[in-house]
Amino acid sequence: MNRQDDLVAEGEPEKEFNPGIAARLPRKTVAGGALIRDPAGRILFLEPTYKPTLDIPGGIAEYDESPYDACRREVQEEIGLDREIGALLVVDWVPVLGPWTDALAFIFDGGILDDDQLTLDPTEVRTAQFLTLTEATPRLRPSMTRRLALAQQALTTGHPSYADFGRDS
């Protein structure tokens, strides 16, 4: 079955018990990122053009797009690879920060990248490099360092984790 078939199988949406309430409910930002490693286990980090810290391939989901689909789309856009994305490693809740709403950040297993040639999108990515988490930490927000450590742990244990701002709960 595909998503459209699943939606049809759900039947009619329930009626709003208070007309207009759905439009007034809070919205969260949702993002999906890929933990892509080289054969030595180093993580693929991108230097974005639009912020001062390193990031992993991925990005914010568009309207009615799943975090998994957003991850695949963003990986293809940012590094030019149409990759199969693997299992969920971490779901992390991120609180309101400045102008940004609170968010849910999903990290998926992006697998091992051997000799594939990356094609970076110059509007989004300055450079890409494989680094250990320790090497990258000075250029990461502390919450991202914690989130990626949990993702690496999930690769080892085979158990995804839920985190609040990068802290295992």
Rank of each mutant, 00 (worst) to 15 (best):
V96C: 08
D38H: 04
P57K: 00
P48T: 06
A34L: 03
G58A: 02
I85F: 10
A103N: 10
S66W: 06
A70W: 08
V75K: 03
R72A: 15
D55A: 14
Y68I: 10
A61H: 05
L97G: 14
D109N: 10
E74M: 09
A61N: 07
R42F: 00
L88N: 08
D55M: 15
G98H: 09
P67V: 03
A70H: 06
V90I: 09
W100K: 13
Y50P: 03
E77V: 07
P48M: 01
A105M: 10
V96N: 08
G32S: 00
E62Q: 09
G32M: 01
L89D: 07
A103E: 15
L46W: 01
T53N: 10
R72I: 04
G32P: 00
D38R: 03
P52K: 13
I107E: 10
T49R: 08
S66K: 02
F108T: 10
E65Q: 11
D55K: 12
L54F: 05
D69Y: 06
G41A: 02
R73T: 13
D116T: 15
G41T: 04
D114P: 10
V90Q: 02
D38G: 05
D114H: 12
A34P: 00
Q76P: 10
D92W: 02
D82T: 09
G86E: 03
D69N: 10
I112H: 06
I43P: 07
D64W: 08
I85V: 14
L104P: 08
L46M: 01
D92T: 10
G80D: 06
P52N: 07
E65D: 02
L81Q: 04
P95Q: 01
W100R: 12
Y68T: 05
L54M: 06
G98S: 12
R42S: 03
Q76L: 14
I79K: 00
V75S: 09
G32H: 03
D114G: 11
L97T: 15
P99A: 13
V75I: 06
A61V: 02
W93C: 08
P95W: 05
D114R: 11
P57M: 00
I79M: 05
D115M: 05
A61E: 04
D55R: 09
D116R: 12
G86A: 02
C71Q: 06
L88S: 07
D115K: 13
P99N: 12
P39R: 01
P67H: 02
T101F: 12
Y50V: 15
R83P: 11
P99I: 14
A70S: 07
A70C: 05
L88W: 02
F106P: 09
G59Y: 07
E62D: 13
G41D: 05
G59K: 03
D102L: 08
G98C: 14
L104T: 09
P95V: 04
Q76D: 13
W100S: 14
G41Y: 03
L97C: 14
D38N: 15
R72S: 11
W93Y: 15
L81G: 13
A105P: 08
G32L: 00
I36N: 06
L81K: 06
Y63S: 11
I79V: 06
A34Q: 00
G41F: 00
F106M: 11
A87P: 02
L81F: 11
P39Q: 01
V96W: 07
I85C: 03
G80T: 05
L88M: 11
D92R: 04
V91I: 15
W93S: 12
L81W: 09
S66F: 06
F45G: 04
D115P: 04
